[in-house]
Design a protein around this nucleic acid. Structure first.
Lengths: 340, 340
DNA sequence: CTGAAAGCGCTAACAT
DNA sequence: ATGTTAGCGCTTTCAG
């Protein structure tokens, strides 16, 4: 007899069991359970009853192999702890809920080599589509994505060279745009506060964009400050303290994330800084969790949910395109920058 | 010829293709690719080369069907937007990373009927284990979990009647414990601020525990205030304003979540309330994101990462037990309650 | 409306 | 160290 996995608790119930109980063929059971093809009401009822009493749960593995159809969409994001990505997932879910497709999430941990591994694992389940955060992949990953033979969408960022379709904002432009807003409001001594993580390409692009924007006005960044580890209020405070101690005459602080900016805001208010008069503050992302801070922080809505939605729509439409959808981030001045 | 899925981009590459290219049998290729059984170095190399040049990606569907082994662990949680659950996932990941198992996440949206559906979908992929948040399931779901034939662990909560193994804290006890801490610090007019959501059983249990604890001292809750929608600073502020307007003599505010408590804290500080003198504040969860608030909020660490870890360990050990692991939440007084 | 046959791509078990 | 055979549980296809 065929070896059974020693881990198996109990024998698997099969279509055949249901068929026998209902006194019909396996095929009929299959048709009833998938609501495909015509089956008489009487038979259908018998089959349903049999399946229900037996507690039959179909084996999708077998079904997928036979039909060559897997209603899963792989979604690969760097991390779930960063609030950015759950928002993207929620957009994806909104769209896929109306289809038979189901998202399956994997995390790359901001590590390109690990990402390659996750992509490989995902593809080996033959999903109906793949959504991958970011444009930065190693060659092996790019090759897999290019040859996957299923719709692939790179999300978040369109500032680079997509392998496939892409939906996102242009982070460099977002940085430039922020520079313009800052300068238009009369700030001149600008500091940047962000993560040291090599894997956060999008923040790096925003920084590059910011510097471009400043350069266009003949300015350079007055100082910058980096942190390791997680973002948070404490992180924002610590960085702010560090950069203002080192360069006290800064008149603007641009943070990689709203969460850190919020920490900076709290720090500044406690020190009695005149915000936005003496020092302006801006973050990035537009987290509504932070509504209710002492001041609304200037930020840029990164369109996360929309990005998820648009990506999912491309997958649901089975679009094997390499279309690039660039969404416009929305600048939200809040109360931490001077009025124009 | 066999019908091909019209969605397929290109024909699937199979073991046979690699076998032909390498001039060996399919079995040999299979052995090489799974690093199982002895294969000569020369053959191994030929196979690797062939697989790599062809860009072969194994079909796990077929492999799983043949081997009756699926290295996936289903994880079903209410939502990803609530920061609680990513923390649990990260604990699960820590443990599973050292095994061949991979977590697959599904969300029940705080809806028991939808949860049943998600459990069914998960089980139909024949995972090696299932981790489900909460003890509250409908009968169909309970039946599925009980008969899954794989290790099943219910996480977060042990206050109820687990179908299978359970790892969590006892939320009613946590509420009682909080009542004791509050009373021991001399507060007497206590208000509760939490979600109206029916699906948040654990917060409801904490509230029940709080009331029990107060009752034990001959007290009752002085007021309560509920919100719809998402937690956040703005939500915390609004609730706090509402409850203090209605019942100005409250001397303690117990929130369902740290995030709302933080909003309440900001509100209170702005109004010049003496915290913790006149009014004490406590939340729940122990989110370290909030480190760096103007005051450290009193809270109870819900042991989320540990819960994830312990649950994953049970799954990894293939434990078909109904063991209940009760972890102790840790009370963190912070600065928003009076010293004892 | 229902059934029988064939086979999806892979791996267990048994050769050799 | 490598090959051969059978079959996992389901769905496609074709026959009635």
């Amino acid at each position: 007899m065929r070896g059974r996995n020693p881990f198996d608790g109990k024998p698997q119930m099969t279509l055949r069991d249901v068929a026998e109980a209902a006194g019909v063929s396996e095929m009929t059971v299959s048709r009833v359970l998938r609501q495909r093809g015509d089956v008489s009401d009487k038979t259908r009822q018998r089959v349903f009853d049999a399946a229900r009493t037996l507690g039959y749960v179909p084996n999708k593995i077998a079904g997928a192999l036979a039909s060559n159809r897997v209603n899963l969409v792989g979604v690969i994001i760097p991390s779930l702890s960063n609030m950015v990505f759950p928002d993207v997932l929620s957009g994806i879910g909104d769209v896929l809920d109306a289809t038979p497709l189901q998202p399956v999430v994997g995390t790359s941990k901001y590590d390109i080599a690990h990402e390659e591994h996750v992509i490989y694992e995902m593809l080996s389940w033959r999903p109906s589509g793949l959504i991958v955060a970011g444009l930065e992949h190693n060659d092996a990953a790019r090759a897999m994505l290019a040859n996957a033979g299923i719709p692939v969408v790179e999300v978040m960022d369109v500032d680079g060279d997509p392998v496939a379709a892409a939906v996102g904002i242009h982070h460099r432009k977002a940085g430039r745009r922020m520079a313009e807003e800052i300068l238009a409001r009369g700030y001149r001594r600008i500091g940047y506060l962000g993560s040291r993580a090599q894997g956060d390409f999008r923040a790096q692009k925003r920084l590059a964009g910011l510097e471009e924007g400043l350069a266009a006005a003949g300015l350079t960044l007055a100082d910058r400050c980096y942190y390791d580890g997680r973002s948070g209020f404490a992180t924002g405070r610590a960085m702010t303290n560090e950069i203002l101690t080192r360069t006290p005459d800064l008149d603007f602080l641009y943070y990689n994330s709203d969460v850190n900016a919020a920490g900076g805001l709290l720090y500044g208010l406690e020190r009695g800084l005149d915000i936005p008069g003496t020092v302006g503050i801006a973050g990035f992302n537009g987290f509504d969790l932070l509504d209710g801070m002492p001041m609304r922080i200037a930020t840029m809505d990164s369109r996360r949910t929309d990005i998820g939605r648009r990506a999912a729509e491309l997958i649901a439409a089975n679009a094997l395109t390499d279309e690039v959808v660039e969404l416009e981030p929305v600048f939200l001045p809040g109360q931490t920058v001077r009025a124009i």
